[in-house]
């Protein structure tokens, strides 16, 4: 099965004289997760609502799987799963009933429905709640049912508007895990977020938006490569506090290392020059020194730098 596509062409939305979205052009194709990143008020929700025909463009148009959303909403949304603005489900419905309604209206054959509903409820870890009324659910539980509803027909295109927003930290982490597990061979996921780490954690590509304008669209790898231009940093965690002389001595003298910052007694941020090749050597040497390294992560500097440098603050 071919994977899904989203095409956004010259999409513009004005509210009175205010331009919420300014000639957005974006074509997404293939099986991947694309993060739609931007600060609050950037225009993410506006774009996704236009993409799903909840609001109407001032100019431009968009397509899902090659079908115009503005001209044929029904056909365009047939193979899309949509979650926008944390919708409410009729409170007297149970998840089973709500998903049954969605599956029925979407044309999932009656014979498959029960299995599909059970499968998606398991996917969002709500299998035990299928027969409880949604009205009494917490925000996080409702959001997970909303995600299940977007998946019940196993769509090719999944559009999620800040799925983890408004949840407590644990709920956010759970939703991120769920979204990460949505990735599959023939699925295109387009997810908005104002949280940088969320996008780097989940997505393969990122489209950066601010003040209604697209700043760039690229893969995370390219962003990293392009921005760091050989400069990078890694965060290293040790099993036990590290003697300061080791950090300033042995580690500081490793090839390519430009600086060391102690984040805590057992945690260092190591800056280096020389790109991926040097990063590889650095990590090998660190492990080879038997200092009790328990974790190595790339500091999120690349996208963070772009984010901070390209987005005008004050939101």
């Amino acid at each position: 099965m071919a994977s899904g596509s989203i095409r956004i062409a010259g999409l513009t939305k004005r509210f009175g004289s205010f331009v919420a979205l300014d000639h957005l052009n974006l074509t997404l194709e293939g099986s991947k997760c694309v993060g739609f990143l931007g600060p609050n008020g950037a225009g993410k929700t506006t774009a996704l609502k236009l993409l799903t025909d909840m609001i109407f463009p001032t100019e431009g148009e968009c397509e899902i799987n090659g079908i115009s959303v503005q001209k044929e909403r029904k056909r365009a949304l047939a193979d899309a799963g949509v979650l926008i603005e944390s919708p409410e489900i009729y409170p007297s419905m149970t998840p089973n009933e709500a998903l049954e309604m969605v599956a029925d209206l979407r044309g999932v054959p009656a014979s498959e429905r029960k299995d599909r509903i059970q499968a998606v409820l398991a996917e969002v870890k709500m299998a035990d709640w299928g027969n409880q009324k949604v009205g009494r659910f917490s925000k996080g539980m409702k959001q997970r049912i909303n995600i299940a509803a977007a998946l019940v027909h196993d769509p090719q295109v999944v559009i999620l508007d800040e799925p983890s927003t408004g949840l407590d930290p644990r709920g956010m982490a759970e939703v991120r895990t769920i979204v990460r597990d949505l990735k599959k061979s023939d699925r295109l996921i387009f997810m908005s977020s104002h949280i940088l780490s969320e996008v780097t954690e989940i997505c393969d590509e990122v489209a950066l938006i601010d003040h209604g304008k697209l700043l760039f669209y690229d893969t995370l790898n390219n962003v990293t490569a392009r921005v760091s231009e050989g400069h990078g940093s890694v965060d290293v965690v040790f099993a036990r506090p590290l003697p300061p002389e080791v950090a300033s001595g042995q580690i500081r003298t490793l090839t390519g290392v430009t600086g060391i910052l102690a984040l805590s007694p057992d945690r260092l941020r190591i800056g280096f020059d020389g790109g991926r090749a040097i990063q590889e050597k650095l990590l090998e040497s660190l492990v080879g020194m038997h200092l009790g390294v328990v974790s190595l992560t790339e500091s999120e500097s690349a996208l963070e730098e772009v984010y901070l440098s390209r987005i005008s603050r004050g939101d």
Binding site: M54, R73, K74, R75, A76, A80, S86, V102, R106, A149
Partner: peptide
Amino acid sequence: QNKTGYFLMGLPIRR
């Protein structure tokens, strides 16, 4: 008002 419309309008369904 109750935001239930956002649930329905994400479906392939005419207004």
